[in-house]
Structures are given as C-alpha cells and as structure tokens.
Design a binder for these strands. Structure first.
Lengths: 108, 108
DNA sequence: AAAATTGATATATTTTAACACATCAAAATA
DNA sequence: TATTTTGATGTGTTAAAATATATCAATTTT
C-alpha cells in the first residue's frame, strides 16, 4: 500500500503545502522530477534515501532514526514545532479580517 | 561520500552493536542480505527507504522526518533515550561482580 | 471565456539497488 | 592451534527507481 511511513508522507505533503510550493517548483529546487514527486507523495514508490533527503532539504525537514521508545516524546516536539509560530516561517493565517474571499465554506 | 545521514548511519551501527547482532543475524531477521548490510553500514549505497525501514524495525528504531528547527530538541531526547536505562531492553552491563570473563579492560 | 497552472498519469530508456551466491582475511572462540 | 564467526568484497542477474518528456482533466488566474 505504501512503502514509506505515514508520518513521512504526511510531513512531505504538509511541508510542501506550508511552503506554498507546487510539485513543479519543488522539482526545480530539489532536482527530483515532478512526475516522480507525484508518485512519491501518493506513496506508491519505494524511493531511495537520497531522493527523500533531497526533498526534505528543500522543505526544511530532516530525516532521522530514533529509538522506538522515544517516539512519543519526539512526536510531541514535532507537533509543537509545527503548531504555533515560534521563530517560524510565514504561518498561513487561518482567517483574515480584511479579506473578501471565501464566499462561504465549512470543514477543515 | 555517503548517501545517507551520519546520524542514521551511526544509529544503525550502534543499535546493532547494542543488540549484539552480527550482520548475518540482522540479515536473517530483516531479510536484507548480509553483503548488502555491510555496504549500507559503510555508507556507500543509496538504499531504498523500505530497506532502511526493515533494518530499523529489527533494531527497534523508527524512521522520521522532522522540522529542521526541532532537530536539537529531538537529538537531546534521543541521547537520553540511549543513555541510562529507562524501561529499556537488556542493557549490556559494563561490568559484573560474579563474572569471570574480561581478564582486564578499559574504555567505553 | 481564455490562458496558465496544477497534480496525475503514461511511455521509453538508463541507472542502480537488491538479490543470490561465493570468497577472504581477521578476529573471536573452542 | 584448529575452528568458527565476523565484516568486507566481488560477480552476475533481476527488478525497479529515476530520468526525460509528453499529455490530460481540473483548477486557478487573468
């Protein structure tokens, strides 16, 4: 179903979205072809570590290996790192007072 | 020089050592050929993510992606996780009172 | 409405990881 | 010291990642 971890997959997709990169832009910056990025993000390719690192680099992510037992603590750290702004990049605002987009909407 | 991160490489080697597995035993448990493990540990192969995950699994490690800025905190957690025992597996004792091995020794 | 951008998908080719071996010197064990 | 185990290395084969390139429907933008 997916050669890669859900955590990694999710992080890649979200990080790209957060940066506002299209697959083509990420491709240009990382050197990985857009068609390949698409396959990677959909999880149906067993990519090489170098490819993963190349993408992570551009997305300001780092690849790791950690003892299983320290996973919960690490996930908590990651959560807070992405959560509220803190030295962070431009955090896309969930809403904006002077905007006139969003006629109406619901979820997320 | 090395397709993979130093952190990952080091973790793989140390985890195997900690568990007292030979490359052949790790091979048997993970399904990755011994000859390949050797190449991987010496860092001159751009392995696939599935291989890395297979090895990590056996070594009680997990593969991750984290925001660069949270790296220091994570490394600190990892350090303490490997450091002193804490719910940990069998931690190989540095010395033992009723043992008659180790005529003499020094470091580590 | 027209134009541009986006993610997904397809094909053909090249590159290389992964495999199954087998061998070897060095280190550990008997 | 003889034996076993270890990590490293090599060869040939196979499977699949990675590439370049092109296309397409669906959005998004102008």
């Amino acid at each position: 179903m997916s050669y890669i971890t859900d955590q990694i997959l999710k992080s890649l997709r979200e990080a790209r979205a957060r940066k506002g990169f299209s697959q083509r832009e990420l491709s240009a910056r990382s050197g990985v072809p857009q068609s390949h990025i698409s396959k990677i993000e959909s999880g149906d390719v067993d990519l090489r570590v170098s490819s993963l690192i190349a993408l992570a680099r551009v997305l300001d992510l780092e690849l790791f290996v950690a003892p299983k037992k320290s996973v919960p603590a690490i996930k908590s750290i990651i959560r807070s790192a992405q959560g509220h702004d803190d030295d962070g990049e431009q955090v896309v605002p969930a809403y904006s007072l002077d905007a006139d987009y969003m006629e109406d909407s619901a979820d997320e």
